[in-house]
Simulated scan of single mutants.
Amino acid sequence: MSNRPDIHISEVGPRDGLQSLRQTMATPAKLAWIDALHAAGLREIEVGSFVPAALLPQLADSAELVRHARGLAGLTVLALVPNLRGAQAALAAGVHKLTLPLSVSAAHSLANVRRTPAQMLEELRSVAALRRERAPGVGLEVGLSTAFGCTLQGRVDEDEVIRLAVQAAAAGADEVGLSDTSGMADPAQVRRLFTRLRAELGARAGAAHLHNTRGLGLANCLAAFDVGVRSFDASLAGLGGCPYAPGASGNVVTEDLVFMFEAMGLRTGVDLERLLAARAPLRAGLPGEPLYGMLAEAGLPKGFVAQQAAGHV
């Protein structure tokens, strides 16, 4: 009997969910939201991004959020860093894990971080060296952005996705996941790419970061699960999107994703009633902002029992 969940959910709402919104959520409201997410059982939260405040004022308080989140028991505090300077600031704040975005699409990479994919690989090597020198216990993951297609470039070559994943692992990433930045993926493509990624990287194949732009978010998560993926990014109420991927909209809804897996008999370690309650501080902190999710509208089915037993996988 193991207490380890069958499915690992990384909540990315406080970063990915907020970065594209016009309004800025006040810091006290963010802290209350993060506390509610933790109380629901989420044990990895991407609390912010260490980018210049002039570019993303919505995330200017990331260091304060990291310091607060470090006080929450059992929580892995994650932050996005686009470069070496961001990694230095994140490590100084005390993050437990760094995530670095590496676009497969050259057009998106230049729009998002003003560097080519090759230049971002060099940045990754610098961040990995910094991590080894200053904080060897801190995790370093890479998310391959636009792995399933790009609104700027169009089709993305699947062979290039796998080549870049292998190069990112060689450059020092502990894990390399695939991100559907613009919501262009379909289940067959998800199965294909994650099968190839896992064959190449084994245990270093990372999370599925999938969007629901065209309504295929949960179907794509299930496709990834079918080929062995057990780690998923999601955002409470489906908030999210990339400011530099026109037409890209929200992430997979955390509540709906947790419900799907729990209904399948798989443990996520997340309390669904408390997770639904975590929408209240989000709504209070973002008045008027649309919140998404089918479970929040329909409610839990009568007689539904969450999974408490050891893993079924």
Rank of each mutant, 00 (worst) to 15 (best):
Ala79Thr: 05
Gly202Tyr: 07
Glu133Cys: 03
Met25Leu: 02
Ser109Glu: 04
Pro281Trp: 05
Gly202Phe: 07
Leu282Tyr: 10
Asp256Gln: 03
Arg22Tyr: 02
Glu158His: 14
Met1Val: 10
Leu210Gln: 01
Ala128Leu: 13
Phe261Ala: 00
Leu130Cys: 06
Asp16Val: 04
Glu123Leu: 01
Leu55Phe: 14
Ala89His: 08
Arg192Ala: 14
Leu286Ala: 08
Leu75Arg: 00
Lys97Ser: 11
Gly240Ile: 02
Gly288Gln: 06
Ala73Asp: 13
Arg114Leu: 04
Ala263Ser: 15
Thr181Trp: 03
Gly86Ser: 03
Leu164Pro: 11
Ala306Glu: 15
Pro28Leu: 07
Val12Lys: 04
Phe148Met: 03
Leu300Lys: 13
Gly303Val: 05
Leu291His: 06
Met25Thr: 10
Leu42Glu: 06
Gly311Tyr: 01
Ala309Gln: 14
Ala199Arg: 15
Glu11Met: 13
Lys97Thr: 13
His211Leu: 04
Leu272Gln: 07
Ala263His: 13
Ala165Gly: 12
Leu282Ser: 14
Gly177His: 08
Glu122Tyr: 01
Asp180Gln: 06
Arg283Gly: 12
Ala69Thr: 05
Glu123Pro: 01
Val227Gln: 08
Lys97Asn: 00
Val66Phe: 12
Gly183Lys: 10
Gly13Trp: 02
Asp186Asn: 15
Glu133Thr: 09
Ala219Asn: 08
Val270Lys: 01
Val166Gly: 00
Leu121Arg: 07
Ala111Cys: 11
Arg163Leu: 11
Gly143Pro: 00
Leu110Tyr: 05
Ala147Arg: 05
Glu46Ala: 05
Glu141Pro: 04
Pro243Val: 09
Val66Tyr: 08
Arg198Tyr: 12
Ala129Met: 10
Gly17Arg: 09
Thr181Ala: 03
Arg230Gly: 00
Glu141His: 11
Arg279Glu: 07
Ala205Cys: 01
Asp256Tyr: 08
Ile9Gln: 01
Ala248Val: 10
Val142Tyr: 13
Pro187Cys: 09
Leu272Phe: 09
Ser105Pro: 12
Arg196Leu: 11
Ile9Met: 03
Asp174His: 14
Leu275His: 09
Ala92Lys: 12
His8Ser: 10
Met1Phe: 12
Ser62Trp: 04
Leu42Thr: 01
Leu124Ile: 00
Ala165Lys: 15
Leu275Arg: 12
Glu200Ile: 00
Ala223Lys: 11
Glu262Pro: 07
Ala208Tyr: 02
Leu72Arg: 14
Pro246Gln: 09
Asp180Lys: 07
Gly206Glu: 06
Phe259Lys: 08
Val253Phe: 15
Met294Val: 14
Asp61Ser: 11
Leu56Glu: 04
Leu257Thr: 09
Pro243Phe: 14
Ser49Tyr: 03
Thr99Val: 13
Ala89Lys: 15
Ala147Val: 08
Val252Gln: 01
Arg230Phe: 01
Leu272Asp: 02
Gly13Gln: 13
Glu175Thr: 02
Glu158Leu: 10
Leu276Cys: 02
Ser179Met: 05
Leu193Gln: 15
Asn212Glu: 06
Ala234Tyr: 00
Glu158Val: 02
